[in-house]
Amino acid sequence: MSNTFSGNNQIGTVSSFPELIHTDFKGEMNALCWHRNLNGDFNEIVTQLSIKENITEVHPEDLIALQLSEKGNIAREIILNDLQLLTDFGASPSLNLLKCYERDEEFDFISTDVYSFHVDRSPIATDTFLCTYHGAASDIIANSQAEQKILIPEIRTKLKELYDGPPEEFGNFLEENYFDLHYQVNPDAAPINLGLGHLWRLAVDHPKQKVLPCIHRAPIENEGEYRLLLIC
Rank of each mutant, 00 (worst) to 15 (best):
E102H: 08
G165A: 08
P123C: 10
A65S: 14
N81A: 07
E106I: 15
D108K: 08
L98C: 06
D127F: 13
F107D: 08
L130V: 06
N96R: 15
L159K: 01
Y101H: 10
G72W: 07
R121E: 13
D113N: 09
E154M: 08
A125C: 09
V119W: 05
I141M: 09
D113F: 07
S116A: 15
C100W: 11
R103Q: 10
A75D: 04
Q67K: 14
L97V: 14
D120P: 02
Y133M: 06
I124E: 13
Y133N: 04
S116Q: 15
L162E: 10
Q67I: 14
L66Q: 12
L66A: 03
L97I: 14
I155R: 00
D139H: 14
L63D: 06
I74T: 10
T132H: 03
L66D: 06
R103I: 15
N81Q: 12
A125L: 05
P153T: 13
N96V: 15
I124V: 15
L80N: 01
G72L: 08
L151P: 00
S92Y: 06
D82H: 11
H118L: 09
I110A: 05
D113Y: 08
D139L: 10
I124W: 09
P153W: 10
F117I: 11
S138M: 13
L97E: 07
A136S: 11
T87K: 02
V119N: 05
I152Q: 07
L63E: 06
A142W: 08
T126E: 12
L86N: 01
Y101G: 01
E77H: 03
R156W: 03
A142P: 06
K160W: 10
I79G: 00
T128W: 12
C100Y: 12
